[in-house]
């Protein structure tokens, strides 16, 4: 197929439940023949951060933020009933019960289906996060014009 229909998702949130829903939709779109692009910005950048190592940045405030806002697909909290991780653990168990993939597994499936990951450079600059903080699956680093260029051609565009 030459011109595939497009879907774009703005990944603003960094909470496990919202991210699960977003990947579910992205994977559904990609499986239905759509060209899917996910733009990760603000707290959403936490989804595509590496799970290992620490994040170094300049200045006390940025370092403090990156310490408290560590991120990584395995570290995302729940938006509700997180209860210092106890709620999340229970939710993950419920997911396992119905063979529902965890966030990192959904990301792997999304990549396998050709979903593109783009990280927002403005948030990176503001929060002092460098490229090496991210997983290698990130396709590119860009700003709003890149998002608009894809979104204006998209049939589905979501802000999550």
């Amino acid at each position: 197929m030459a011109d595939k229909e497009k879907m774009t998702l703005i990944m603003f949130s960094g909470e496990m439940d919202k991210v699960l829903a977003a990947f579910n939709i992205a994977i559904g779109g990609a499986s239905s023949g759509m060209d899917v692009t996910m733009f990760f910005t603000f707290w959403g950048l936490n989804v595509i951060k590496k799970n290992e190592g620490s994040i170094k940045s300049k200045g006390i405030m940025r370092n403090m933020l990156n310490y408290m806002n560590r991120g990584g697909a395995k570290r995302l909290p729940l938006s509700k009933f997180h209860m210092a991780g106890a709620g999340k653990a229970m939710m993950q168990r419920l997911m396992k019960d119905i063979n529902f993939p965890q966030v990192d597994e959904l990301m792997r499936i999304a990549k396998e289906l050709g979903v593109k990951f783009i990280a927002c450079t403005t948030t990176m600059g503001m929060m002092g996060i460098t490229k090496d903080a991210f997983i290698t699956e990130v396709d590119s680093f860009a700003g709003v014009a890149t998002y608009i260029a894809v979104a204006r051609e998209s049939k589905i565009n979501l802000f999550i």
Partner: peptide, 11 residues
């Protein structure tokens, strides 16, 4: 398996 896995596997 629940959504979206049947669709993914079918595709």
């Amino acid at each position: 398996l629940y959504c979206p896995m049947p669709i993914v596997n079918t595709a």
